[in-house]
């Protein structure tokens, strides 16, 4: 196991749980969406860390592909959520 595994794996776990805590406890809808994104980033970090095989070895490409997919899925969900929020505030202004 490499030092980079320790460092980045650990911070991936921490970032994910930071994000989870904010998703559960934050009041602002927008910040919850940001928190979900941060949480996802933590998971992606774990994936990229396990793909790493040291400075001279080629990394495992599969987690990289998975993270690419994950990033695109995350931006789709974020876009839908933001539009929902916007529409909701418009409806509330009309009420």
């Amino acid at each position: 196991m490499l030092t980079a595994h320790w460092l980045y794996g650990l911070s991936g776990c921490l970032i994910m749980t930071f994000g989870l805590r904010a998703v559960l406890l934050n009041d602002s809808l927008l910040q919850r969406i940001i928190a979900l994104n941060v949480m996802g980033t933590g998971v992606f970090m774990i994936l990229i860390t396990i793909a790493y095989r040291g400075p001279d070895a080629a990394p495992d490409p599969i987690p990289h592909a998975l993270v690419l997919t994950g990033i695109v899925v995350a931006v789709s969900a974020t876009a839908l959520a933001l539009t929902l929020i916007r529409r909701l505030t418009e409806e509330q202004d009309n009420d």
């Binding site: 998703v23 809808l29 979900l36 949480m39 996802g40 774990i46 929902l84 929020i85 909701l88």
Partner: peptide
């Protein structure tokens, strides 16, 4: 309905993120 849908979305995203972890 929008409020319910938004909460549904957030819960769903949280669920799939935990699944992905």
């Amino acid at each position: 309905a929008l409020q319910a849908a938004l909460r549904y979305l957030l819960v769903g995203l949280l669920g799939s993120m935990l699944f992905l972890a």
